[in-house]
Amino acid sequence: MDDQIKISVKSANFFYGSQQALHEVNISIRRCFVTALIGPSGCGKSTFLRALNRMNDLIPGTRLEGRVELDGQDVYSSSMDVIQLRRRVGMIFQRSNPFPMSIYENVAYGPRVNGLMKNRAELDVTVEKTLRSAALWDEVKDRLARSAMSLSGGQQQRLCIARALAVEPEVLLMDEPASALDPISTAKVEELIYELKRTYTIVIVTHNMQQAARVSDETGFFLNGRLVEFAETKKLFTAPAKRETEDYITGRFG
């Protein structure tokens, strides 16, 4: 097994009932890389992302064929502890969704439910550390007890990132994390992604090609539920191998 590979997906087919959303997807996501997934809306990139931590299990009538491996272990095997899988593979959603609790409680939620901390002091340390990693600490350190809803949109999204980091995941899945943010907040989130990649494997779905070009090391292009092309980001954007990819990145459709 290749030590550089964090997640490996082999001939994955995904179904919503009888409707097939993914066709024979094969991909290897490298450790501590940022992998971007691009493609027109409805192409299956979000479905693919949610298949990696089995979030699709929440939708009744869905089914995955093929194999998804995390560190060589079958994510969909019956012995897989889904709860534990989701702790290891964190997720950031398109719309920031902090819980209606205080800023502190939002970050502390994950460690609490996972029973990671023994006492309040330890929890305090983690909260501070993760808020610092999410580049939010300086902005919120004086109002940790305030409601998370009082933060701006960009801050809320970074809080969600901090919340995800607090359970010490290995992989971060980001589903268009900046699509609802203004340019300045987007820049901050992208900067953050750049920082985080030193420690985490990141998979990011985006409809923004510039963003993919800026933040990612490798990029996959999805179209109609198929992974059309997967290559180093620079190569994919400058010399795409497939005609569809070229059409898409030059803006001929989508």
Binding site: N53, M55, L58, I83, Q84, R86, R87, R88, G90, M91, F93, N97, F99, Y109, G110, V113, N114, C160, R163, A164, V167
Partner: peptide, 9 residues
């Protein structure tokens, strides 16, 4: 979804 994605049951 947010809660489950954090590893909560």
């Amino acid at each position: 979804e947010a809660s489950l994605a954090l590893g909560a049951t």
